[in-house]
Simulated assay, not measured.
Amino acid sequence: MSSVSSSTAADDPWTGGADAKREAVLSAAASAFVQDGYGATSIDDIAARLGVSKPTIYYYAGGKQALLGACFSVALDGYSEAVEEGAVAGVDGRARLHQVVQKYVEITATVYGRCLHRVPDVELTPEVRDRLRAVKRKVDARIRDLLREGVRDGSLRTADVRMSTFVISGAMNSIAQWYAPGGALTPQEIAERLWDTFSEGVRPR
């Protein structure tokens, strides 16, 4: 599966190999779904964005629902990897949670992350929908674990881990609804400002 990216694999992917061409197709599809909505987007629209034929889209990525599933999978791969035990380092729960927030926000700001949060899951196949829910549970559990870890080691404070998790997740997911590339803030800056706002509420006193 392609890595999370906010752009096509190369300036001219059609001079590259099959992976670059598939990445270009997925990126164009995700951009169309974000901009125009899944229902209003056709395979012809995606082909027009790339200046290729409709059969080319089918060849590299399949039909419209397969395209959507593949776009979701890129984001889900990123989210899943971001919260793996080995991917999060730090001296305490606070530092480790900070890393998760940074990585999650950066993925959400990609075209694949925005596609995942903007397209209703009713458009997905049952298999992709099940994986979406499984990854959401995994991320939720990781945030709760890190909050509890921070409370234990004294680096965080919260009276309600569940509520704090809802607040963090809701704030991070909402970024997909308003973020646009080329804005005043980079994804990294957005992640830091979100963390600064949230971390004041869980700072030990």
Rank of each mutant, 00 (worst) to 15 (best):
G150M: 03
T56E: 12
D121A: 10
V4H: 00
E189F: 11
I57R: 13
Q177Y: 14
S169H: 11
V91E: 15
E123Q: 12
T8H: 05
L194H: 12
F72G: 00
I57Y: 08
I175L: 10
R22T: 02
A30C: 05
G69N: 04
S73C: 02
Q65R: 13
M1R: 04
L67V: 02
V101P: 03
K54L: 03
G150Y: 04
E192D: 12
T158Y: 10
S27A: 10
M172T: 14
T197E: 09
G93N: 05
V25N: 06
V119E: 05
Y59S: 08
L185M: 12
D92M: 04
V122N: 15
D196C: 09
R131Y: 08
G90E: 08
V151K: 05
C71N: 01
R96H: 04
M163L: 14
A28P: 11
K103C: 03
V100G: 01
V119N: 03
G17H: 04
S31P: 05
A40W: 11
P126W: 14
S169I: 12
G201E: 05
Q99V: 15
K64I: 03
F166V: 13
K21G: 07
R157A: 15
I57E: 13
R131C: 02
D19Q: 13
A20P: 10
R142C: 07
A95C: 08
P13A: 04
R133P: 04
K103N: 10
G51W: 07
L76A: 00
D196W: 10
K138M: 08
V52G: 07
P13T: 06
R22C: 02
R203Q: 13
I143R: 10
R162F: 08
K136I: 01
A47V: 05
Y38P: 06
A48Y: 07
V25L: 04
E106A: 06
T197Y: 11
A66Q: 15
I107D: 04
S6P: 09
L50G: 05
V4N: 01
D44W: 09
K103D: 12
K54G: 06
A40N: 14
A159C: 06
M172G: 08
E23D: 10
T15K: 15
T125R: 03
P120I: 05
R118I: 09
L68T: 01
Y112W: 01
R22A: 02
V101Q: 04
T41L: 06
Y104M: 12
G63D: 05
S169V: 13
E189D: 14
E84K: 15
K64W: 00
